[in-house]
């Protein structure tokens, strides 16, 4: 320090530590393992849903929730048992699952194909992307009447509705995934002598996989949503039909059973995507939570 600065330091108000000898407050760094009592993850994940059911049962039992507005969990379990026993629920689920599967596969095929065309080539982008972006902003629920006019009231309009919802989500995310691939890796691939197809197969598509997985999550959610809409219009089987019928007879217990089935199927779909991500994206160096 120059003399002037030293003099300035001398004018610092008392209490501000200026030099050696001032005591520093130390705090202990607590090891993670000593601090944390670990509960298995599946237990932690189950706490929310189970707690919700318990609260619900308590409210129903205490008379806060009248049975004609919302049946209690115990009643619902009994109704569900009956629906399973007489075969109504399994057959409805079978029909609905089949619709979702067919719609998902066909929608995914179209969405991914379009995403590849516009993601991989600039010509494809010019031809496809603007069109898809335009159609995307049409609310797809609004086209149900048109689908019925065009495709009748059979399976076709329901599957088409699911496919449309799925296709847009996959298109957007796969396209974004392809365009989000690190240009440095593409360049590295080029320097290693990969041709166009080699680059697509070894660099671009694996790089787009995280985006595709996000798209798949959205697509599955949309597929269930589209299923409900589709089955409540002109259906004579499936979960949506069961719900519609129950509404007419004021059977809140049946409605709730169907909703629970939807929730379970959603949970199952989420589990499938998680498993798929764990298998396909294990290379990804991303934050996984603490």
């Amino acid at each position: 320090m120059s003399g002037e600065q030293a003099a300035a330091a001398g004018r610092v108000p008392a209490g501000v530590p200026v030099g050696p000898g001032g005591a520093v407050a130390l705090s202990r760094v607590v090891p993670v393992s000593g601090r944390r009592w670990t509960v298995p993850r599946w237990v932690r994940r189950a706490v929310g849903p189970v707690g919700l059911v318990v609260v619900w049962q308590v409210l129903s039992g205490g008379g806060v929730l009248p049975a004609d507005l919302l049946a209690s969990p115990v009643d619902i379990a009994r109704t569900a048992g009956g629906l399973v026993a007489d075969g109504t629920l399994p057959s409805a689920m079978g029909v609905s699952l089949q619709r979702v599967a067919v719609g998902l596969v066909s929608g995914a095929a179209v969405g991914i194909a379009l995403a590849l065309v516009s993601g991989l080539s600039r010509l494809g982008e010019d031809l496809v992307d603007a069109t898809v972006q335009m159609l995307r902003s049409i609310p797809w629920v609004g086209v149900i009447p048109l689908f019925i006019i065009w495709l009748g009231i059979g399976e076709a309009p329901k599957i088409a509705l699911i496919a449309v919802g799925v296709a847009f989500h996959l298109y957007l995310n796969v396209y974004a995934g392809i365009r989000g691939v690190d240009a440095q890796l593409v360049e590295a691939g080029t320097s290693l002598g990969l041709g166009r197809w080699g680059l697509i197969r070894h660099v671009v598509l694996p790089g787009a996989l995280p985006g595709a997985m996000t798209g798949l999550r959205y697509a599955l959610a949309t597929a269930w949503l589209a299923l409900v809409f589709g089955e409540q219009v002109n259906a004579d089987d499936g979960l949506g039909f069961l719900m519609n019928q129950a509404r007419e007879f004021f059977r809140t217990d049946v409605i709730v059973v169907c909703l629970v089935v939807y929730a379970m199927l959603g949970l199952l779909a989420d589990f499938l995507v998680r498993t798929l991500e764990r298998l396909l994206l294990q290379w990804r160096p991303t934050f996984t939570g603490q």
Binding site: Q184, L194, H202, P206
Partner: peptide
């Protein structure tokens, strides 16, 4: 000819040995 870049530029989705043989005929 071959290049080693400043960043290793390994394909994160390929195990090390697959990265090494990537692009070989």
């Amino acid at each position: 000819r071959a290049v080693a870049f400043q960043a290793p530029r390994l394909m994160p989705w390929k195990r090390v040995w697959r990265n090494v043989v990537l692009g070989l005929p």
